[in-house]
Simulated scan of single mutants.
Amino acid sequence: MSGEVLRWSKHIVNDVTPTKDPLARRFPGIRSHHMGIDNWLYLEWLENGTIKNLVGRAIQLGITLPNRLLWRFFLCSKKPEDEDPQPVREIAEGRARGGLIHGDMHDQNIMFGNFIPDDPDTEHRITPILKLIDLGGMRMVEGDGDAMREAVRDNLFDIGIMMVELVTLSSNTARNIYPSESLATKFRMQQDSQEMMTNGGVILPNGNVNPYPKLDTALRGLICSCLTPKSRNRPLASALANVVTTCIENRDEQFYASRGYEGESDDDIKSILDQLIFNAS
């Protein structure tokens, strides 16, 4: 069910139907494997490893991920409206329809595909596509609109956790984040905005100490907004997708260079990806 609903989503692993399924064949004199025809699934090959692989390699080489790479990893997928055999972009129109909870989103269930050089959305021209795998535990939420919106909010919290891991390069830090009002930290999206609570305090400045001085403050704020302990305070998925898309389009190398950030050029990102993914041994 989940695979059919998400088929052709740009950032969900796609199933493949082989012309000659070897598991479906029966051979005279050979005992059956006793698997029903619906008990297995073929998936596309994703050749470039997992987020866990990337984080481990980055720690090994002492590499911090640049903001322009983090923005692109942040952008999450949107369910397609119809059965279109083309990848569907993430720009969200209206409210997220929701209803699906992955239930096991972590650094080994998000994998890298390849680049999309002619990507009309520009998102994957300089970074490889991310795809969510292991949909076996995904469930469809039953109920009214409130229940479906809650499912979306749960997924946003998981996405926030993954972003914390990519910022901190610490899977242990990410694994210890969960919705908790008693452990939440105060933060503001912008200097003059309303104060909120977040369980992403590990990436926030603490007094005069900023643990991640190279992290874009707007990106930090959006990650923290996904990690609010009260789910109703998390952003709408559609609004979040549109903001992140706008930042990807507008925050280029010149934007960061003018603000004193280094290592944000296309060449810098290519070099990092070569070291962490494509030429990693």
Rank of each mutant, 00 (worst) to 15 (best):
K10D: 10
I12R: 02
D15N: 14
T19L: 10
P22M: 02
L23T: 13
A24R: 09
R25N: 07
R25M: 04
R26N: 14
P28G: 02
G29M: 01
S32W: 11
H33G: 10
H34A: 11
H34P: 15
H34S: 15
M35H: 11
M35L: 13
I37G: 15
I37P: 15
I37M: 12
W40V: 02
W40K: 13
L41D: 01
Y42F: 11
Y42K: 07
L43H: 12
E44D: 04
W45A: 10
L46Q: 05
L46G: 12
E47M: 01
N48H: 15
T50M: 08
I51H: 06
I51L: 10
I51S: 06
K52P: 04
N53H: 13
N53T: 14
L54C: 06
L54G: 06
V55E: 02
G56C: 11
G56A: 15
R57I: 08
I59P: 04
I59E: 12
G62S: 07
G62A: 13
T64M: 05
L65S: 14
L69S: 09
L69H: 14
L69M: 10
L70C: 06
L70F: 09
R72K: 06
F74E: 08
F74M: 09
L75A: 04
C76T: 03
S77T: 08
S77F: 00
K79P: 02
K79G: 07
E81H: 01
E83T: 09
E83W: 07
D84I: 04
P85I: 13
P85N: 13
P85M: 11
Q86G: 07
R89E: 06
E90D: 04
E90T: 01
I91H: 09
A92M: 03
E93F: 12
E93D: 11
G94R: 04
R95W: 00
R95N: 12
G98Q: 00
G98E: 00
G99K: 02
G99Y: 03
L100Y: 00
L100N: 02
H102E: 01
H102P: 13
